[in-house]
């Protein structure tokens, strides 16, 4: 009963926001607005799915926003270079996408290896890599903006703007990643190991679980998710700069926490994370539709929601005792 409440909490909040939005503006529930909300949620949502793994394993990754900007920058430069070598634009895009995916997983592996083998706390490691990636993208862009060649971009465009049966491509990817993440976290031995390592690393080690491996893979999943979010983000604007992905790490962590995953690890909920990402986007959307609260207060409202969510979860946790 109590467990059900825990799972239902973010969904109830989501429902309440939907009702609120409908009351404020009749157009809120229109297909156009709903598609817009889902599409915009997908970047943070996909990254937050990876963050659910890292946080469940008892770590944290602060580098995801910078990592996204860096991957976007490298992908754009890579594709611009390739474009001069071949006329097959689909090949250029495919190579760029693969490069992004490989880079993302490598960046995740690096965070993982530094935390486990280097025995440095994840907070410190990823604070460091966060600064490194942000600075690297600024350097690559020479302080300005890296723009994707227009020929490549027109080939790449559908990855963000395309749809299948009216469902935007990013939403389809978001949904697929969520299902995949859910299955891995809840129905495989690896998912069980992630949550066990997060709950008590000693117990995991004494249960013959290779805790370093579990953590490194969690960081690599996070890297792959960041890469996936970047792959659908690049065709949206066709550019990357030092301001790309700023504060995404905090939004992703917020989505995870609102969703009911414990920040100290040991318990993760992918469904909650998806709801959390949607809640964050909805707040911004509703503020846009109303004059009651200034749009400039978006961050403040999000902040209140995060604190309230954790407060409520803790209340429920206490009752359980």
């Amino acid at each position: 009963m109590i467990i059900n409440w825990k799972a239902a909490g973010p969904l109830i909040a989501l429902g309440a926001l939907l009702v609120l939005g409908t009351l404020i503006n009749g157009n809120f529930l229109s297909t156009g607005n709903m598609t817009n909300i889902l599409t915009r949620s997908s970047f943070i949502g996909i990254i937050a799915i990876g963050a659910t793994f890292v946080i469940s394993s008892g770590s944290i990754d602060l580098s995801v926003g910078s990592m996204a900007a860096f991957i976007a920058g490298v992908m754009i430069m890579f594709m611009n270079t390739l474009k001069d070598l071949t006329d097959l634009m689909w090949l250029v895009v495919l190579a760029g996408v693969l490069a992004g995916a490989v880079l993302g997983m490598f960046a995740g592996w690096l965070n993982g290896i530094l935390t486990t083998r280097g025995k440095i706390e994840a907070f410190i490691v990823t604070l460091g890599t966060m600064g490194i990636y942000r600075s690297l993208v600024t350097y690559l862009a020479d302080g300005g903006t890296l723009s994707l060649n227009s020929q490549v971009r027109s080939m790449y465009r559908p990855v963000y703007y395309g749809d299948i049966l009216g469902i935007p491509f990013p939403v389809i990817i978001f949904a697929a990643m969520a299902v995949l993440g859910y299955v891995v976290l809840n129905h495989t031995a690896y998912g069980r190991h992630v949550q066990s390592v997060g709950a008590n690393e000693h117990v995991a080690r004494y249960s013959a679980i290779s805790t370093d491996r579990v953590k490194i893979i969690a960081f690599m999943i996070q890297g792959a998710c960041v890469a996936m979010a970047t792959i659908i983000y690049v065709p949206r604007l066709g550019s990357a700069s030092s301001s790309t992905g700023v504060l995404w790490e905090l939004e992703a962590i917020a989505a995870v926490i609102i969703g009911g995953t414990l920040l100290k690890g040991g318990y993760g909920r992918i469904g909650g994370t998806v709801a959390g990402a949607l809640i964050l986007t909805l707040i911004g959307n509703i503020l846009n539709l109303t004059d009651a609260i200034s749009n400039y207060l978006n961050g403040a409202v999000q902040g209140v929601i995060i604190i309230a969510a954790v407060f409520l979860q803790r209340g429920i946790g206490k009752k359980q005792k």
């Binding site: 709950a199 008590n200 995991a204 013959a208 679980i209």
Partner: peptide, 24 residues
Amino acid sequence: KGKGLLLGNDLVHNFSLFALEKFT
């Protein structure tokens, strides 16, 4: 309590953790 059992997890999760491959 510190190294043997996950005190915050249920009994089945604790029971199967060491032999998880067997059920997977």
